[in-house]
Simulated scan of single mutants.
Amino acid sequence: MTADPVDIALFAAKLGAVFFAVLTLAAYLVFAERRILAWIQDRKGPNRVGPFGLLQPLADVIKLLTKEDLVPAAADRWLFYLAPAMAAIPALLIFSVIPFGAPLTIAGHTLPLLIADLNVGLLFFLALSSIAVYGVAIGGWASNSKYSLLGGIRGLAQLISYELSMGLALVPVVMMSRSFSMTDIVTAQQSMPFIVYQPLAFIIFLISITAECRRIPFDLPEAEGELVAGFHTEYSGMRFGLFFVGEYINIIVLGGLAATFFLGGWHGPLLPPVIWFSIKTLAFAFLMIWLRGTLPRLRYDQLMHLGWKILTPLALFNILVTAWLLFLTS
């Protein structure tokens, strides 16, 4: 069976639009963070390049592309080159299974507003989030630097620890929607978002994705005051830029996932579905920026204690309670 050329063209247009939108959002999220943190700290922030400083992301890209790209003499060169891609690419791939709007009908062709409607979309997300861990670990190891290695080890332990609580927080979502498909999970929230039924799972997931993004108060893999910049200390130029933009792509993607799992995805009154999805996703991004300007960094023992002794037991308890309630109401 040959594919319809119109379907192929629509898919290519959708893929290009999503790729462009995510990268543009990530670039301007950096700008937004700098302006919001400046407002919190009572200073101006970037305001020189273009009107209101809106061309600052373009200036940053030019700077990164033209900076000298150095590789430490004793580094493992191939792993050193590979690590930044492993940090950024999985986040982009995760976005391919997130539905960001209701299906559209164009010229008699139905266009679902997501790249790939997998029936195991949630498992696909968990698998790719596991791969992203290797970008931090390999970057720290391949640099052949004590600071980078310590940051890589911290990042590996942190991401594995909080990945467990994040995955367990999503089990009640699967139990209530009876599906691993992102589309089915959003459809199951048509009348009521899951945050109403699962506030504890939402809080656990929110804390876990903040740790997965390595954001304050969980920025111990970077910890400028202790490790200079942690796992990416030895990176410069666009390789550092990939680590940097990968973090902000991750914020957008994990914010979109939080909206999909707990806030009803693209469902909402009055406004178009894509607008609702964008508002919910950017609200999470704003929350992470606000936390960075508000909270201090945790100690490492506090970080591990929170993940293993508080969040993981609470997530397991929540699964048992959810299973019991679903059994009583079935």
Rank of each mutant, 00 (worst) to 15 (best):
T2K: 11
T2Y: 14
D4P: 06
V6E: 14
F11K: 09
F11H: 10
G16Y: 08
L23A: 13
Y28G: 02
L29P: 01
V30C: 07
A32K: 03
R34D: 11
Q41G: 05
Q56M: 13
V61H: 04
I62T: 14
I62S: 13
E68I: 08
Y81D: 06
A88C: 12
I89E: 06
P99V: 03
P103G: 01
G108M: 01
T110N: 10
L113N: 06
N119L: 06
V120C: 04
V120S: 05
F124R: 05
F124M: 07
L126K: 03
G140S: 11
W141T: 02
K146P: 08
K146T: 15
Y147V: 13
S148C: 08
L150E: 03
G151E: 01
R154E: 01
L156P: 02
S165Q: 10
G167L: 00
L168N: 05
L168C: 03
V171R: 02
M175C: 12
A188H: 05
A188M: 04
P193C: 10
I203M: 14
I203N: 11
I207G: 09
I207V: 15
S208E: 04
C213M: 12
E222F: 07
G225K: 06
L227M: 14
F240A: 10
F240C: 08
F243L: 13
F244D: 00
E247F: 05
G264H: 02
H267K: 01
P269I: 05
I275N: 08
F277A: 11
F277M: 09
F284Q: 05
M288A: 14
W290T: 09
T294W: 15
P313H: 10
I319W: 12
V321W: 15
A323F: 15
F327C: 01
